[in-house]
Design a protein around this nucleic acid. Structure first.
Lengths: 85, 85, 85, 85
DNA sequence: CTGCCATTTTACCGGC
DNA sequence: GCCGGTAAAATGGCAG
């Protein structure tokens, strides 16, 4: 007596609801992205270097172990290629 | 003759404030991403195909964009023809 | 149980070789960019409007892409309809 | 007796020639890009970390002064934000 | 010098 | 769990 096999056209409204909820959330996400860009612009106006800020943000996201690993690799590659410290 | 404008040692708190505001917003963005994934999971549980849903979302996004594109192309051609003859 | 697979201290020459091949190709790319700019300059000297030329180039690139796009959209819709009914 | 005011439809062939030369060069540029991506893939297959390779390439492009400046700024920001060395 | 556009780069997500 | 491709973001370059 399986009545629920695969949702099809019958509950189109349900699918539409899912889609719309997702679209709403994506819209909010987009706005947050805009807010973030605004803050970077503001920081730039205050004399900070946006690129470096992004690097730092990346570092703060990493665990200490990841950070160590990343720095280790970069240093090794630099050594192998003869880039001065 | 100060050419050095980049903010550095001064305003430790200001930089930190910018960074923290950004991190807060990124956190919210991340949460929205999680919410969206949840809805997909829910829809999947209701028998919908996630891949198809993503296609629908993409199409809904693209279709208006495409219309704008087509209009843009027409405009460009008109401009070019206006110049050439 | 070596879990460390990332190449590091070994093969200094190998890494350097990869890097140098890439740098060589990037160099060539850059030169092509310069050649292109030169042609624009030449065309400008011959009385053509660079901006318009760029539009023409863009249109010539986009028009086929757009056709592909339209076909793609049709396919997607067909697929979706095929599933829904 | 200015005969050369603005090139127009009359020398359409000339414009076409410029356009085609440019398109040819752009095509070559694109191929070089593909070649580069291929090398990265090869390096990856050999166990190298592509992301780090890109960092190193960037470093190699910088002058020592730029490099020092970038590292100085990054370190300062890290200090200000309390990121451990 | 600023804004725009193209390219590159990063992050995400489903599939294997 | 990793890899691949795909979409968004960011960076760099150019014309104005």
């Amino acid at each position: 007596m399986t009545e629920e096999v695969k949702s099809v056209a019958s509950d189109a409204g349900k699918l539409a609801a899912f889609i719309e909820r997702i679209e709403r959330l994506e819209e909010e996400k987009k706005e947050l992205g805009a807010d973030i860009r605004e803050i970077f612009a503001e920081a730039k106006g205050a004399g900070y270097d946006v690129k470096v800020m992004r690097q730092v943000l990346r570092l703060r996201k990493m665990t200490p172990a990841d950070r160590a690993e990343a720095e280790y690799l970069r240093d090794e590659y630099k050594k192998l290629l003869g880039i001065a410290e």
